Computed example of a mutant assay.
Amino acid sequence: MALQTKKWDVVNFLNTREDVVAYLDAALEENDAAFFAKALGDVARSHGMTQIAKTAGVSRESLYKALSVDGNPEFATIMKVMSALGLHMTIESADKAA
């Protein structure tokens, strides 16, 4: 009997605000802009890409492209999507003792 598997998609596990915040926070810790953009795209997909694009004032197609693994979104696009998701970024010292 062959082993049956299903494609794993993080979108299926971003069910709460806490899940989303933890996921994006972990993505930011990687210090990789492309990785964060892809993670933000995952969150946008979990909330409905069409609605997020509309709220952010960008086309759905351009948002998919910008937040893909090969995308290179402008920071303004990141901020628009964060706002559409009801999220914002905060800055803290990398040196926790400072």
Score class of each variant (00 low, 15 high):
1 M>K: 01
2 A>N: 01
3 L>Y: 00
3 L>S: 03
3 L>I: 01
4 Q>E: 10
5 T>M: 08
5 T>H: 05
6 K>G: 05
8 W>K: 11
8 W>N: 10
8 W>M: 11
9 D>W: 09
11 V>W: 00
11 V>D: 01
12 N>A: 10
12 N>P: 00
13 F>C: 04
14 L>F: 05
15 N>M: 04
15 N>Q: 10
17 R>G: 02
17 R>N: 11
19 D>Y: 07
19 D>C: 05
19 D>M: 07
20 V>Y: 03
20 V>M: 06
21 V>R: 12
21 V>I: 15
23 Y>H: 14
24 L>S: 02
24 L>H: 02
25 D>G: 15
26 A>C: 12
27 A>G: 04
28 L>H: 05
28 L>M: 14
28 L>R: 09
30 E>M: 14
30 E>P: 05
31 N>L: 14
32 D>M: 15
32 D>F: 13
34 A>P: 07
35 F>G: 12
35 F>S: 14
35 F>A: 15
35 F>T: 14
35 F>R: 13
35 F>V: 13
36 F>H: 06
37 A>E: 01
37 A>T: 01
38 K>W: 06
38 K>V: 04
38 K>R: 11
39 A>F: 01
39 A>I: 03
40 L>P: 05
40 L>H: 04
40 L>T: 03
41 G>H: 05
41 G>S: 06
41 G>R: 09
43 V>Y: 06
44 A>K: 09
44 A>V: 10
45 R>P: 02
45 R>S: 09
46 S>P: 01
47 H>P: 06
47 H>V: 11
48 G>E: 07
49 M>V: 15
50 T>L: 07
51 Q>G: 11
52 I>T: 12
52 I>G: 04
52 I>S: 07
53 A>P: 02
53 A>Y: 04
54 K>F: 12
55 T>E: 08
56 A>H: 09
57 G>A: 03
58 V>A: 09
58 V>H: 09
59 S>K: 08
59 S>P: 06
60 R>W: 03
61 E>Q: 12
61 E>T: 12
61 E>P: 00
62 S>R: 08
62 S>Y: 03
62 S>E: 05
63 L>V: 08
64 Y>K: 02
65 K>M: 00
66 A>Q: 07
67 L>Y: 01
67 L>W: 00
67 L>I: 03
67 L>D: 02
70 D>M: 13
72 N>M: 01
73 P>I: 07
73 P>A: 08
74 E>N: 11
75 F>W: 14
75 F>V: 15
75 F>M: 15
76 A>H: 08
77 T>Q: 10
78 I>R: 02
78 I>D: 00
80 K>E: 08
82 M>A: 12
82 M>H: 03
82 M>T: 04
83 S>R: 15
83 S>P: 00
84 A>G: 14
84 A>F: 10
84 A>S: 13
85 L>G: 11
85 L>N: 10
85 L>H: 09
86 G>A: 11
86 G>T: 13
87 L>F: 11
87 L>T: 07
88 H>C: 06
89 M>G: 04
90 T>Q: 13
90 T>I: 13
92 E>W: 00
92 E>Y: 00
92 E>F: 00
93 S>D: 06
94 A>W: 02
94 A>N: 08
94 A>S: 10
95 D>Q: 07
95 D>E: 09
96 K>L: 09
